[in-house]
Amino acid sequence: MDSTPDSFLDTAALIRGSMPRPRRLWLWYATLAVVVMILTSIVTAEENPQLQAIVRFLSGLLMFAMVLAMGWFASHTLKQQRREQQRVEAIEELIQLRRWDHAAGMIQAMLSRPTLTMSGRLQALFYLSGVLARYDRFADAIVVHDYLLSHAQFDPITAHGLKLMRAMALLREDHLVDADRAMGELRREAPDSAGLALVEIYRDVKTGHPDEAIEVFKAKSAAIRTQLGHRIADAYILVARAHDVLDQSTEAAAAYENATLLTPVEELLRRYPEVRPLREKYGGAASPREGVQ
């Protein structure tokens, strides 16, 4: 990678530089040439029967060359597009495996130049927003979210995920009014979303409304478990903080233990800096995994 640390994952540059180039016009020129050739051969055949054989022979050669060229071009383009799709899939796998540095490097390399397809570009930008959030660059992540939501049409599930990520990033950046508006929109679209419940719990903990956070958790814990799986640890750690604020140390300790049973403490503290005071107060669940508590 030749980029300096300052320009690493420069969102504006990546959004600008990754736009696919417009398709070349030579395909239209080739089609025009074929039409001209056909018309010429018809006119020649009518006007000068002696020249007809020569024109037909030459147009035959040209046709043959064009068929070969178009076949090669189609196969070449398909191979390049497949390679780009494989790179996007590799980025997705690296993110799933939490190999953030590798994923960031691949995204930087892919979006630094025009992509071949718009779908590949949008997928890579989607993953870029996730990596930026992981690096605590929430303002940059919001820029990418806004760009994607205003410039692309996603299926409802992906669009919902993107809006959730944006709402969480807004909360992390303390843009509470914008976050509240984003949550209102999410509530209208998918009131039963477990992701939305998690964002609401975080908002309540962050703004000092522990009772509301506990209420939301009680009402939505079954949905959070079914829809978010291991990420229920996030809800447990936030609820632990809510109980702690209310001086309910028994409940706080139980929720803290549940959270740390599912996810390492360090990871939870990274995601939600507001829960740091819990670490000194409560003992996390012991893990048989090496080096994990």
Binding site: V34, I38, S41, A45, E46, A53, F57, G60, M63, F64
Partner: peptide, 20 residues
């Protein structure tokens, strides 16, 4: 149709049109 280009044919048959 490509081969037809190289054969002597009546003017009414245009191999390029057939290929199109």
């Amino acid at each position: 149709v490509l081969l037809l280009h190289f054969l002597p044919l009546p003017a009414a048959i245009n191999p390029s049109l057939l290929l199109m």
